[in-house]
Amino acid sequence: MESFAYPHFSSIAHVALFDRVTNAGEIRARIVRASSLEGDEGDAEREAVSFAFIDARLVTSVLHIQTAITQALLAAAQNTLRTKTVHSEVIWALNPSNNITEALRRYGVTDDSTALFVIRIESLASIDVRSRMSAVVEGTLVPMSALAGLTDWVAVKKYNKLGGDPYIKEIQNDPAHEHHLIDNIVVSFVAMKSVSG
């Protein structure tokens, strides 16, 4: 797990990458159930799953995640959140369209997810985030560098509508160059989402 402090937002983002996750469907069901539970039990359950769970296949780099966190924090600070929480806003920021359901379906945890980014955004006071994450996710905590083997570049191109770009087709036989460029483009998409279109 890595933690990134955003001093100008008085916030800290804890980011962990889990591989070989076996209970993705269960996590998804738990989040859905927590949203409708009432009373103290509901609050406790919502707190237990208060993370952004992101399917790692569609993430091109840690910078991609960090950029989505920055834009979500900015929206929270300016009271312009498009979704209910800063965690769901991170997922929304990753998807190029404005459709919230589509963003959650594509970038959030799905029943067949096996690698997940788990993110918790906090004010600077620290809590034991790692054990809280491990209480929810059954999987192996891996270093961020493991992402290199997890990204599904075909899906990234499809969901970001880059498959038809002539220049990207031109360089598709040079994966290092192609992946670096696509990463820079999708990171830029996340950063400029508020002014795209």
Binding site: T70, P166, Y167, E170, I171, V187, A191, M192, K193, V195
Partner: peptide, 18 residues
């Protein structure tokens, strides 16, 4: 972003607060 997609060498975006 348009330049990036066309293979023109330009820096990418990291943060936008319009």
């Amino acid at each position: 972003v348009r330049c990036l997609r066309c293979g023109v060498s330009v820096p990418g975006l990291r943060f936008v607060d319009v």
